[in-house]
Nucleic acid binder design. Structure first.
Lengths: 192, 192
DNA sequence: GAACTCCATCGATGATTATCTAATCAGATA
DNA sequence: TATCTGATTAGATAATCATCGATGGAGTTC
């Protein structure tokens, strides 16, 4: 397993948090089992077993040997042990505390190209707002920027500086007078 | 933790199979946290956090220190390690395959005292039937038992041999002639 | 005692998921 | 090719569970 990021552990625990799947693990730990056989032993229908096996396979916990139309499943115990290690050393445990990316961070990550420029300006108004807010870090409070400089700053991210400038003013992030711009205090910015 | 029965493990995995609870674990692993604080960090409302904490407390994974109206929660790492051990040694793993106790096995377990004798003869006719059936293992087919021997066998489990003997005959588990008893074939026993 | 703070409980709501039937697929066999 | 068999996929349904607002309880402060 890669590193113990919260998503990986969560997927693992979700897979194990079901009685049918736990019992399947027990059964395929003993020896190879076919879908039919498992359905019989667990008193479930075959599609249900198939569904559970798919969940376990997605985590690479099973080995499948195909023999004609029969699929023989057995446990890959290393899979289990990988998760074991990941979970129970303290370093990884506290790593769970690290918050996930927020929605805004994800939006930014999605629109950012490797060179740091924006792929496009999002069509969604709310996403555009996130990206404009993000670009405000290019402006210091208390400084005055001629239009030419504003454009230069914005074009580091996307060529359509005019649109971005206009919307920043609309959201009250920037103010303008006589073609000179300045950053407004963050608590005055409007919400999307 | 006691032994790794499937119900215990299932409860543990269900508790861990939730992102909010995983992140709570990460946060309380670092240091003590109040409900408020967790709600803030996780961007959840307090009742939700309270609910998750209750789930973790039910598994004895948390330690709580009450200070005025504030409840400080921290992780009890031993709790985690107990589950760890239970899960990941192979012996316990295959134990998952063992089917749950049937109703009959539970009845027997409930009436059996540590020394192997019966606490009482159940009042319920159906439970009494289960326990009599179970005691039939003391009799071999094809052998003839004088009444004295029958009593001796039955009294290993409960002093009231007369009642048990009489009911075994009623259920056609035992037959009698001239004060000599013998076991009847299992497919002739009557159902409760 | 009144007001306030922090937390727990209750009941409702929406989302997720386990399970089923029906339909489909893919090897094997006639 | 037609048929059979074991497995998967699709779609529907029902149960479970996460979350919330409203309310209540218990300690603290005034």
């Amino acid at each position: 397993m890669p590193e113990a990021d919260i998503a990986t552990l969560l997927a693992f625990f979700k897979a194990m948090a079901n009685e049918s799947r736990l019992r399947i693990i027990g059964l395929v730990a003993e020896r190879e089992r076919s879908v039919q056989e498992l359905a019989e032993l667990l008193d479930l229908k075959e599609p249900t077993v198939s569904h559970h096996l798919a969940a376990l396979k997605a985590l690479d916990l099973l080995h499948v040997r195909v023999e004609g139309v029969t699929h023989w499943h057995r446990l890959r115990p290393e899979g289990l042990h990988d998760f074991n290690r990941a979970l129970f050393d303290q370093k990884d445990l506290t790593a769970l505390a690290k918050p996930e990316q927020t929605w805004e961070e994800k939006v930014i990550a999605n629109f950012l190209m490797p060179d740091g420029t924006l792929r496009t300006l999002p069509a969604s108004r709310r996403k555009r707002w996130v990206l404009l807010k993000w670009q405000m870090s290019g402006f210091e409070e208390g400084r005055r920027y001629p239009e030419k400089e504003v454009n230069a700053i914005l074009q580091r991210r996307h060529p359509d500086a005019a649109t971005m400038r206009r919307e920043m003013i609309g959201w009250k992030m920037l103010a303008r007078e006589d073609n000179v711009y300045w950053r407004l205090p963050e608590d005055q910015w409007e919400e999307a």
